[in-house]
Design a protein around this nucleic acid. Sequence first.
DNA 1: GAATAATTGTTGCAAATGCAACATAAATAA
DNA 2: TTATTTATGTTGCATTTGCAACAATTATTC
Lengths: 210, 210
Amino acid sequence: MNYNFDVNKFIEDFKNNCSRIYEKTFFKNEVIISYIKKREQVCILLEGTADLVRYDRNGDRIIIDHFSKNDIFGEVFYNITTNNELFVEAKQKSKVLFFSYDIIHTKCKSNCKFHKELSEYFNELVLDKITDLNMRIELLSKRSIREKLLNYFNLLSIQKFSKSFTIPFSLTDLADYLSVDRSAMMREMKLLKEEGIIVKTGNRITILQH
Amino acid sequence: MNYNFDVNKFIEDFKNNCSRIYEKTFFKNEVIISYIKKREQVCILLEGTADLVRYDRNGDRIIIDHFSKNDIFGEVFYNITTNNELFVEAKQKSKVLFFSYDIIHTKCKSNCKFHKELSEYFNELVLDKITDLNMRIELLSKRSIREKLLNYFNLLSIQKFSKSFTIPFSLTDLADYLSVDRSAMMREMKLLKEEGIIVKTGNRITILQH
DNA sequence: GAATAATTGTTGCAAATGCAACATAAATAA
DNA sequence: TTATTTATGTTGCATTTGCAACAATTATTC
């Protein structure tokens, strides 16, 4: 998406002027942020990919969200009610922008223009986030593994403007994302292949009919 | 939740001053808004309850979201990609505030203070919305009907500050909301009762252990 | 480059879920 | 009030899904 907004220039200016925003790089499997009650940190993913993960009391891992460039995350968007740890983990080398939620809608002392820009940019990102979450809810609402897969493939296809695409997860992670058993998901993929609905070579999928 | 903000007074002032915002009352089963691509309507539910509903290509009804007082909804939050109609339906007599998304972040000609207030209030509501959506995603991620029910009951219990509460849905709708078969859900509720985990009389639940 | 770890792929079997069909109770309309 | 619709509650059976255990392939580390 194009926000008509030069993030990198903006960040440089902001960092020079504001000092309440900072950037950090993370490597694969590092924890970017662990959600803590009452703090109000917000992050924007500038580069890389990351997952919001929880291990629930059965030991099941849930991938609650999957982030890529320009996605926002942080504890402001979450009501922390249980004790189960909730954290965002880098899936590859990632650059992340950190700031506190309150700087977005309050002016800084110097009344700098960067706050205004961040605020506007942030609003766009928030709308995108809500849209993504709604799509994910529809995905999880599908009643069968088959429907979840087909729906997910369809979303990727629309995103990539093509009937062929690579799944941006490992299949193990995809199963956690769709909230189904991995082996059952593999079985269903096999059936979809056998029925001529998709072509699958490794993590690359082509939709033939839908 | 308390936003330290007098919505009703605000609305009166706004309607008198701005004319780009209006309020309407709906009765049970009436369609409040049908989501249309490219339009950018936003609604705030002032009174009553309503559901965001879709019928998918299998004829299954999905309750994508359930709204009560102060919830926001509208097509800005949705990417309309399929042809399946998507609409919000009043579940009881409801009062709804309508306006276009663009009025929130642009000043009106008279530079009135209401825009500023609406903008601030709106930001609070947006955060709440994201929090709700995230909770719902976790709920739908639960791997079994039992886990979904217990998780949902737990949320209600926290919301109502009590181990006893009334389910704000019909059980038929709750099944659609949790995205499970109604009879299977009833069976699971029965088991939870028999195992002494909950007490259930009609739509009233008491959690005994969890 | 060999050893180790992680991911993909497969299958039998048990358990959970959905489907269908129905009975009963409650709410709504005539 | 009575009739009609809608919601709740129940059960047998078929299907789907999850679990467990393993083989094969691909990445990663030493």
